[in-house]
Write a protein that binds this DNA or RNA. Sequence first.
DNA 1: TTTTTAGGTTGCGAATCAGTACCTACCTAA
DNA 2: TTAGGTAGGTACTGATTCGCAACCTAAAAA
Lengths: 169, 169
Amino acid sequence: MGKLREPLRDIAECGLPAALEAVGERWSFMILRASFNGLHHFEEFLTELGIARNILSGRLVKLVEVGILQRTPSPDDRRKVIYQLTDKGLDLLPAMIALRQWGERWETGVPSNPVLCDERDRRPINPISIRAHDDREIDHHGLCWIDEGELNADRDQDNEQPVKNLGAM
Amino acid sequence: MGKLREPLRDIAECGLPAALEAVGERWSFMILRASFNGLHHFEEFLTELGIARNILSGRLVKLVEVGILQRTPSPDDRRKVIYQLTDKGLDLLPAMIALRQWGERWETGVPSNPVLCDERDRRPINPISIRAHDDREIDHHGLCWIDEGELNADRDQDNEQPVKNLGAM
DNA sequence: TTTTTAGGTTGCGAATCAGTACCTACCTAA
DNA sequence: TTAGGTAGGTACTGATTCGCAACCTAAAAA
């Protein structure tokens, strides 16, 4: 594995490049989708995804390395290996669903069948949205960046502070 | 542009492969992040991202093609071009923030500075989460797939239906 | 009128992707 | 106990894409 490629700029500064470093390669998200859907074995991913063996092999190694998947030899059949999502992997679900919903809204057009629902009430889930501290839905207009220092300083006060409007994400 | 590569399987069936087809390539998300942060010009992206000119050029063409960015010649300076997010592009924000938050939680560790806040109350936004129809937060345990047919059939009834637990995302 | 700037394109080597043919351990049926 | 199939990989090959640097053109700026 070459790995001479410079890591996406500013790994430390922002979580996005870091996330992309872990799951940004081609097929990674598709493998995770398959995992979320209960696939556990190499050959299952292979036939379900239509990915090449060597690529799948490499991706699985990577996803295990970064701690998104866990690799366990099957107790029943010593040929088999069980790949399953760790907590870290499961925590990608909101991002995956958000991306999927975007694809449905803007690309495929249809909210594909079957529909993702909550198990208790058996009704479709809401669109993933951005929420303020009080759970108010907000869009990009209602967002800004605040410095950690300023944050603590002006809590529970109403003095005006300079607002950097999305200046350094 | 070769484009002989088979599109990620089942484009029509699910929004995720469709979304990845649009923004799944290397650098696409970083360009969008920069766009969200108010960058508009080729040379700005170039220096801010540290991406190669030809790659940036290709990505911008692609993102414009799929309708995520809009390309407008600047009225002030006829050399300049303004790239800005369309509504379709802006609608990727929840997915981007979810991914970024994941990266902060699991990779960088720190909720990087400055902090993304709501403009009204100037407090950090909540983590992106999955919500049921009644806005209840749910995790992967509380999710299931329901067929469109079944969905309409059992609305406002409490008969038991077979639950496919994440069987075909 | 020369120089700079903005936004590209082109060419080329390096890295990655993808398809296929192996290979090895293991299970199963005869 | 052995032949044959299965599970999970590697190794080899060619196609595609990435990334760097050089170049190019139109339009400001000096």
